[in-house]
Write a protein that binds this DNA or RNA. Structure first.
Lengths: 202, 202, 202, 202
DNA sequence: AATGAATGAGCATTCATTCAT
DNA sequence: CATGAATGAATGCTCATTCAT
């Protein structure tokens, strides 16, 4: 039932989608939609939640926090982009819709914040000699922004997954090496622990 | 008159904003809005155009293409973030609205593409020994994405302009040094020529 | 539900009638009107169709094509005028509205054309020695025009049905006898005086 | 100034014509229209009056009440149809508009009444041995209706002026000869077959 | 459990009409 | 004398939402 909703929302956008259209697509009656989801907003929220969960689950399942940071990064980025690539229509579009729909900006912001937080921790624990005063969170923001932008390109078919992955991995990896970059900084850090990440995602 | 529109659109979003509300805010009557802008869509487009122009003009005025790439980068990033900082409400929000409004995604995409193209050229001309097969455009996509993300933080007041600038400058600078990062890469490139940039923006 | 529409359209005219007014009269809500009829134009069209059908059905039911032409004519004219008389408000007015509403002139014209065509055939087949070159169609046009004019009088209550019927029957019947009039009509009356006419034209 | 109004009203109809359009066409400003004519309705009324006057004047100038009835009739009909033919767009359309515009039906009705009255007098005075109880006025109504219908055909270019004139003259002339028809009409043709009629109506 | 039928509320848009200049 | 600028008031239409069944 959410399938229909997700599809139509993705294609038409939140505002341009009518409950009638969703009900028709789902081959149920409108009162059912309201019975189960209460309102259009909640329905969209449910779509968002489900797609987000699927996304997170997929990526989680592909990474192993006991790996070396380098492998971890590679696997995470690949899982991320592969998911995007495999679910072009549904995910990115829904995500974009949510981003600017006032009522959901909040939800999206929260989700993004969690990822930024995670990346931030990875950066922090992965950097051996951090510059004093390095703002890992802001760096994470930037890197996640870069990731989203590249993912968007992947989702439209304008970028190759593998190429995109290499690029992001490189970018993140350099991020891991600390903000400066002026002087020879080498190799990163002790592997992030599962618990740390679990907390970040909690 | 656009001021009112920009303000209300920024606060409420495109769809949630009624022409009545704008007319009320602008203290004029609805027919005037229609006389001058023809339709809600065109009105929003006008808002977008004006704000975009102001933004571009401001940033342009602060950079000098005859500077060294390093200075150029620094000035551009600072101008960019300062503008965002100084026009928190209006610009970023309008931009986000446009991003996901179906009718304007196109416009925004085009604008972003121009910037990506510009950055891509800068990277290309600024990199002394580019890795063979480096996809400068995708790198530009990533960097611009990072820039947007950081700018968004600045616009919400959650990030300090100067810190954000340093971070972005670093990120871009490293981008300039080529995709790898594994081996000792040093110094960048010959200054970008004015013509190259002019063409990119033309 | 169409009843309300027909009534209001008849009283106020197409343009002067608002969907609100119809909904109010029909004691339903506007969305219902749109659900069932799609648009104001379609609603008016539906009214027109229904009234037209009723009219045609009524007249059809009262005539028998196996009768002698004379009886056929008499019955048709009587059925026609009786119907008009019995549905004063609804039919003629709706018909007039449609006639000049740009969007329906077409429909009305077509309907009238069918009747003209029918009358034309009747004339053609009913005339024993047609004048060579007689334009039966144009004659039909004239007779139908006469019929409409008389019907209009009936509908306003300004003419008696039976008298009107006799007159039309006579007129049509003479039409049936051919265009002639060329030969020996022993001149008519004393010349109308200028003053008489001047007075008439006031 | 009325010229513009007449033209636009004729082309677009009363309701579909905006004062803006008229002002634009007339190359004056809207306030002028209001200064001179007070309201849209009055403006249309003025158009109607002027066109009606021109029409009446033209026809009047072509007839001479001292002629024989036959010549009078012929000249009047010819003048009438020639005028229609020469002013296709303007007159008939305006006339039709007025007919069903609620606010002008009155005016048109009055005008028509005057003509009917005139024709009625002509019939009355032109008929040597009127059937007792003949309703000349209703006959005039019918004949005028026939005249309008034929004129309409002329105005669309679907009928030839001369042919139409002959037909109307004949019809009127027979009208002049009285209502009779009861006697001595040696029945007409073979009964129309059902199929023929069915086809006509199909 | 499921829905057909119904609606209140709102929105973009237009137009006849009028001041202030 | 003429008008540019402005508006109050409607109007057609849509949509999220809810009863009655």
């Amino acid at each position: 039932m959410l399938d229909a909703a997700v599809e139509i929302f993705s294609v038409n956008g939140y505002h341009e989608t009518s409950m009638d259209a969703i009900a028709a697509k789902a081959q149920i009656s409108k009162p059912m939609l309201y019975l189960y989801y209460g309102s259009k907003e909640e329905l969209f929220g449910a779509c968002l939640d489900r797609e987000l969960s699927r996304f997170v689950d997929e990526v989680r399942s592909k990474i192993d926090f006991s790996q070396s940071p380098k492998d971890l990064l590679r696997n995470a980025v690949l899982a991320f982009l592969n998911y995007i690539d495999a679910h072009r229509a549904s995910w990115m579009v829904l995500y974009n819709q949510a981003t600017s729909s006032q009522a959901f900006a909040h939800t999206v912001r929260e989700g993004r914040e969690r990822i930024i937080d995670l990346v931030s921790r990875l950066l922090q624990s992965g950097t051996r000699h951090p510059e004093p005063g390095t703002d890992f969170e802001l760096m994470a923001v930037a890197l996640v922004g870069a990731g989203e932008a590249v993912a968007s390109r992947v989702s439209t078919g304008d970028a190759d997954v593998h190429e995109a992955a290499e690029l992001l991995i490189n970018l993140f990896w350099r991020g891991l090496k600390g903000t400066p970059a002026e002087h020879a900084d080498h190799a990163p850090a002790e592997p992030t622990t599962n618990t740390a990440v679990g907390a970040a995602e909690g």
